[in-house]
Computed example of a mutant assay.
Amino acid sequence: MTQQPEEPPVGGRSETPGEAKRLGPPTLAEDLLLLLFQPNSGLRSGTGTIAGENTLFYTLAGAVLADLGLGDHVRTGSGRAGTTRVEAVEDHPPSDDILRSAWDYLSAKPRGVQTVLAAIGPTLRGPLLDRLVERGDIRRGTRKAFGLFTTTVLEDGGSGRRPRLLEDVRAVLVEGVEPQPRVAALTALLSGSGTLPQFDREIPWTSPVISRAKALERGDWGAGAAAEAVARTVTATIVNNAIVAASVLPRT
């Protein structure tokens, strides 16, 4: 059963257009949301939707926590009844605003992973989508619905970043390339969202692909670099907990 937040939900705020140039490198959650964007899945050609909306706040929150783990901003430990708890690494906050908001929430005290996911997840979609628009990865457009109403639609921004991310994921799942921890986390979260079958054109939905994806969900990411071992273990634990939490929700 999913735990309820111990405090009101927290999350990053949207950047204004004047702040776009100050954005740092894309976060893992931005990469995940960009991959989940399906450019030609809308009612009209050239418009898109976000796949996996029903589990989105869990998977995006998992990506935020995973980013914190990769950056050594958080550590994990054991809680009651074998649960996993996350705590902020003191005096090591991230510079990114969205990651910092989650780190601030954790800096008050260690919390169960599911509690953190439920607290930070619901507010993430909007700010992350705004960032993708600011970066030019996604474009907001307008369309007439039934010839009467103007609606906002999402379109491919033409930056080319989504195909590059998808190729990284494909290399891991189809070609068996040993992933770097960040790509492993991204691939595991994408698989855990339940949306991989929708990528069948680029990533064939075969038994070997399914097996590899499930292994990544469990944290089997390969040997990797020794220096990354701790961050990899923390991140894999977080990702696995996020996937377990999302798995109890209905899929779309």
Rank of each mutant, 00 (worst) to 15 (best):
A213G: 04
E178L: 13
P204W: 11
L173N: 02
L189Y: 01
R170D: 00
D200L: 11
V174D: 07
R170M: 02
E217N: 07
A188E: 00
L166W: 10
T151R: 13
R162V: 04
V153R: 03
Q198W: 12
A145K: 10
R182M: 12
F199E: 06
V177T: 14
L196M: 14
G157Q: 04
L166C: 08
D200F: 15
Q180N: 15
D156A: 13
V209P: 00
G176A: 05
L189S: 02
A213D: 01
L189G: 01
G194H: 04
G176T: 02
T150Y: 06
R162A: 06
A185Q: 04
T187H: 04
G160I: 14
P181I: 12
V169H: 05
D220I: 12
L173K: 01
F199Y: 15
P204I: 08
V174Y: 10
S159C: 10
R212Y: 03
I203Q: 03
V183D: 07
V172N: 00
G160M: 13
R201D: 06
G194D: 05
P197W: 15
I210H: 14
T206Q: 09
A213V: 01
L165R: 06
G219H: 11
G194A: 06
G176R: 06
E155G: 02
L189M: 08
D220G: 10
G147L: 07
T150L: 09
E217K: 06
A171S: 14
P181K: 11
D168M: 05
L189H: 03
F149R: 15
G192D: 02
G158A: 13
A184M: 08
P181Q: 13
R182A: 15
K214D: 11
A213S: 12
G192W: 00
V169T: 07
G219Q: 09
A215L: 12
L166Q: 11
L186I: 08
S159V: 09
A184E: 02
V177D: 13
E178P: 11
F146S: 14
T152M: 14
A145R: 13
R161D: 04
F199Q: 05
R212G: 00
V169A: 08
R212L: 07
E178K: 14
